[in-house]
Design a binder for these strands. Structure first.
Length: 730
DNA sequence: AGCACGCCGACT
DNA sequence: GTCGGCGTGCTC
């Protein structure tokens, strides 16, 4: 009797065995990586076969049987199945859920998988062609399409683009044409590649291009290029070489960086061989891209995080653009980092990988420093465009209006009067509030950790998130005795309200998560900004991502301190990336821009380094700080978070985990500490941070701990999760 | 997760 | 007397 092992999408760290009945129709074609329909508890679920020849110690006849084989070919190739097994192991996530999160949504359900079908138009049966031609003599476009269908049928998408949707509709309504489903023909782009002539590269670009082109096996290149230095041109030219070898290219981009303009640029150079994969697509469209990648119908896929799971027919290169961006890390379910998976795939497929950024992550810089990655630099801006100059404004003790200094308001007035735009960056979310003295700029800091205390409104105290140290909220500054202590910065709405009243002759626009909920809305706003419909732009992180604002000549960062003083050890890194990216968004060749940073601590060495020496120098200093403090990338972290309405359960669970993990001497366990968002949707949230110098060691102790935690009586009564290499502690 | 089973408190 | 709250255990 044949017994196979099936991974089921449930949060259990085990697989299940099933009999394969002899009478199953397509039994001979059953392969690993195929989906099957199986009875489970008292319902039917879709599972993925992960072992064709399972060994069991139980009585095989007691096993349930597979009901149906859903696929004609495996949805997960052996390469992707290996990736999935590694993923489940590395992120300590149940295999079934892991494998299913690698698939497009449509394939997570019962739906049968067949070869990619395409809809074709043909002339309807029983249509008298002569009569039809006569009846169409006054509808030129419809006539043309109808005639075209005489000798060959046309695919629906071709017909729609060559003629028009209305034309097709019209003929359909007249019952002159009908639809037919057929297996889509393979798109043989490899034989008819039309590539537009490349731009002449400058010296640095040329070095980068030739270095990458020389490499045809696995290697990771960190391409560090200041904004406007022409990273994209490097991508384009190395992609060309890969396409000419008839291989495909995957380009991973941050969630919001994927604009139609990005795709246009690739399409202009390489023609219609580019597919996009982003959150704006429907499930059917996503499945279509999945098929196209698998069949080799497209040469290039540009996509967000989850595109790293696409089943390419013949992948020749992966590019991760803006590799420092946090959106590459999934923040729920399987908490993978697409950059790390890109490395895994590149190694397994033995192909080159490019990580590009103007502000590389410290992880990648460290890997470059230790020779794991090849470091390529582009330090010159193309053309004569110069970056805006950066300035610090000491706001200590100053009168502020809605958080803005008078001097800045005056500068804004000048720029606005000259017809330029101004941009105000407001950080409203994401970072923990620390307590700062407005008189002297002193930040209340835990003495033992040199980490700023975090305000906890619920507990009504200050807490150090490194060591758990707690103290009462002081009513005066411990340095100068002033009682003007503040935590919360201004939100975008407040700033918008104030500025639209103050500059009532100009139009304000707010760009934050509320206004970007829909992609169309964001594009609308961006367009109206470029058309100068608004003069004052107020926004959050989104302002620093991807979009260029050529008419902005003055940028303002309202509260640099809130970015800098946070218990999250990555705060300074993120601050530097943000300020640098923000500066790169503004101005154009003929207008020198300025960026002003309001701070209570203009002498802070990191801030000084960033403003005076630029991101490259700043990031190297940060890396030294991390080394000294033994923080990532010099050590490895795991996060164990628990949530429940009942505080006692959360603490009992985490303390149990801690007592277990504390036995391992080569790891440090910090906590349980309240999360930055201590209460969310009525649940109290606490976490444990586990840190070790060795990734393998950390993984193995977490695996051991997990077995115990799964068996703990509270494990099913609270919500809890493990996050390996956590990015965000909120 | 999702579901069944089982045991105690306030209700038509 | 029962309805339904949650705690417990199981899923090939």
């Amino acid at each position: 009797m044949k017994v196979v092992q099936v991974a089921i999408p449930i949060p259990l760290r085990k697989q299940f065995n099933y009999q394969v009945p002899e009478e199953l129709p397509n039994i001979l074609s059953l392969k690993v990586g195929m989906r099957v329909l199986v009875p489970f508890s008292n319902k039917k679920l879709v599972g993925i076969v992960c072992d064709l020849d399972a060994s069991t110690d139980v009585d095989e006849t007691k096993l349930k049987s597979i009901e149906a084989i859903l696929d004609e070919f495996p949805v997960l190739s052996s390469h992707l199945l290996v990736l999935g097994v590694w993923l489940a192991d590395y992120y300590l996530h149940p295999l079934g859920e892991t494998l299913f999160s690698m698939l497009p949504a449509k394939l997570r359900k019962h739906e049968k998988l067949t070869e990619l079908n395409q809809t074709y138009l043909k002339i309807a049966e029983n249509v008298e062609r002569k009569d039809a031609l006569l009846s169409l003599r006054r509808a030129k476009k419809q006539l043309a399409l109808f005639r075209a269908l005489f000798d060959h049928s046309l695919s629906l998408s071709e017909a729609k683009s060559e003629y028009s949707t209305q034309t097709v509709k019209a003929l359909e309504e007249k019952k002159l044409i009908e639809y037919e489903e057929r297996i889509a023909p393979k798109n043989e782009w490899q034989h008819a590649l039309s590539i537009e002539r490349a731009f002449d590269a400058n010296v640095e670009q040329a070095i980068a291009i030739s270095t990458i082109n020389k490499c045809s096996t696995y290697a990771t290149f960190l391409l560090e290029g200041v904004t406007g230095s022409g990273k994209t041109e490097v991508y384009l030219q190395v992609i060309e070489a890969v396409l000419k070898k008839r291989q495909q290219v995957l380009i991973l981009v941050p969630e919001i960086g994927l604009t139609p303009q990005t795709a246009d640029r690739f399409q202009r150079r390489f023609g219609e061989i580019v597919a996009m994969m982003h959150s704006g697509l429907s499930d059917s469209q996503r499945l279509c891209v999945w098929h196209q990648a698998r069949r080799g119908d497209v040469g290039i896929v540009i996509g967000t995080r989850s595109s790293v799971f696409l089943p390419f027919e013949n992948l020749g290169m992966i590019i991760v653009d803006e590799e420092h961006d946090d959106s590459f890390k999934q923040q729920d379910g399987l908490r993978y980092h697409a950059r790390d998976l890109a490395v895994f795939r590149a190694v397994k497929l033995n192909i080159p990988l490019i990580l590009g950024s103007a502000t590389p992550s410290l992880e990648s810089l460290h890997n470059a420093n230790t020779q794991k990655y090849h470091h390529l630099t582009l330090s010159n801006r193309a053309g004569n465009a110069s970056l805006p100059s950066q300035h610090l404004l000491n706001i200590t003790g100053q009168q502020l209006q809605c958080g803005i200094a008078q001097g800045i308001l005056d500068k804004m007035a000048i720029q606005l009067a000259e017809g330029n735009q101004v941009l105000i960056f407001v950080n409203r979310r994401g970072f923990a509030p620390s307590l700062i003295c407005h008189q002297c700029g002193h930040v209340e800091t835990c003495v033992g950790c040199e980490s700023p205390f975090t305000m906890h409104k619920i507990a009504g105290n200050l807490q150090c998130h490194r060591c758990g140290n707690q103290r009462y909220i002081p009513h005066k500054c411990s340095q100068c005795g002033n009682t003007d202590l503040s935590t919360e910065g201004q939100g975008t709405e407040q700033v918008e309200g104030f500025l639209s009243a103050y500059f009532s002759n100009y139009s304000c626009v707010r760009i934050d998560s509320d206004s970007t909920r829909s992609k169309a809305r964001l594009n609308e706003i961006l367009e109206s900004i470029n058309n100068n419909k608004h003069q004052i732009l107020i926004g959050t992180q989104i302002l620093s991502k991807g979009h260029h604002f050529p008419n902005v000549t003055l940028g303002l960062v309202l509260n640099l301190d809130a970015l800098l003083f946070s218990e999250d050890f990555r705060a300074a890194e993120k601050m530097g990336q943000l300020i640098t990216q923000l500066s790169g968004r503004a101005g154009r060749a003929n207008k020198q821009g300025e960026v002003w940073l309001q701070t209570h601590q203009p002498q802070h060495p990191l801030v000084q380094d960033l403003v005076n020496n630029g991101f490259m120098s700043f990031s190297r200093s940060l890396l030294e700080e991390r080394r000294a403090a033994n923080l990532p990338p010099f050590s490895f972290q795991a996060l164990l978070r628990a949530e429940s309405q009942h505080l006692d359960r959360v603490l009992e669970f985490l303390n149990y985990a801690k007592s277990m993990l504390a036995q391992f001497i080569n790891a440090k366990v910090i906590g349980p500490l309240p999360c930055v968002m201590e209460k969310k949707q009525g649940r109290l949230r606490y976490q444990l941070v586990i840190q070790s110098d060795h990734r393998g060691y950390l993984l193995s102790i977490m695996q051991q701990a997990l077995i115990e935690l799964d068996n703990h009586k509270l494990s099913s009564r609270i919500r809890w999760l493990v996050d390996m290499q956590p990015q965000d502690f909120s």
